[in-house]
Design a protein around this nucleic acid. Sequence first.
DNA 1: ATAAAGTCCGTACCCCACTACGGAGTCAAG
DNA 2: CTTGACTCCGTAGTGGGGTACGGACTTTAT
Lengths: 137, 137
Amino acid sequence: MQALTISRLAREAGVNVETIRFYQRRGLLTEPPKPLGGIRRYDQTDVARVQFIKAAQRIGFTLDEIAQLLELDDGLHCSQARAIAEHKLEVVRERLVDLQRIETALAQLVGRCEASRGKVKCPLIDALQPSIANSPG
Amino acid sequence: MQALTISRLAREAGVNVETIRFYQRRGLLTEPPKPLGGIRRYDQTDVARVQFIKAAQRIGFTLDEIAQLLELDDGLHCSQARAIAEHKLEVVRERLVDLQRIETALAQLVGRCEASRGKVKCPLIDALQPSIANSPG
DNA sequence: ATAAAGTCCGTACCCCACTACGGAGTCAAG
DNA sequence: CTTGACTCCGTAGTGGGGTACGGACTTTAT
């Protein structure tokens, strides 16, 4: 348990101090107890937690959703946790599908771009259509 | 080319009218020419475009990024398009990895939760750590 | 001809996730 | 025991992505 100041915590997690404090207000991070007129100290688990928050955000979770995920991690009542987790899992899998479609479309675009210079009508927009039966134009 | 009003366009794309107008202001949609004191008309390609925007947003692209993607689709200079596409592809693949890690972690959590009721210290946070060599605690 | 519904366009407002600021307190070095 | 960097805490401001509103105009139905 190394003791980090808030600014070191922030630096190690790649955010700024204000963001740490903001997360504390939001309940995403608990403030460690303050030694009577002293300075709060943090450790590596806090760094991990902040990095988790940022990673979860990058893939599209809101702070409220992340709060839920973190509660799971904190070991809630198991049945509740499971229900939340299953719901998230569905959402995650849907996103995964979208993302894979985009990946395919982008990879194809790059490929075609290589093959045929000039006007490329790319498959990007098609890739994200919600399964409309597409008849050949 | 069916002729849709703005409100039908909005309904078919699953957004509201104000959002369409907002996208026009942002340059994500072009306003069709207005027949001299008349009403603008839209078609299915506009519906597709709006649906694309929403799908891309769900997986974490900003409107600015989406504007770039749409320019690709509109058939820009091929070399530029390719560069942008390749960059996006990298970003998408990183997100995909994060998302897959979360998926695994959530699935494991659900599984364990079934197996052992009680305090579950779940692998969620670990799943999103940026590859720190984790020694067994 | 007129009422109801819809369009057009500008401006104002809202929520989320920060980010900045400012004054008082704390700590570490000289 | 002062100086300078940092912490603490409250409150205010910012940028992204919309949403709401309101007055003038157009279209559709009767």
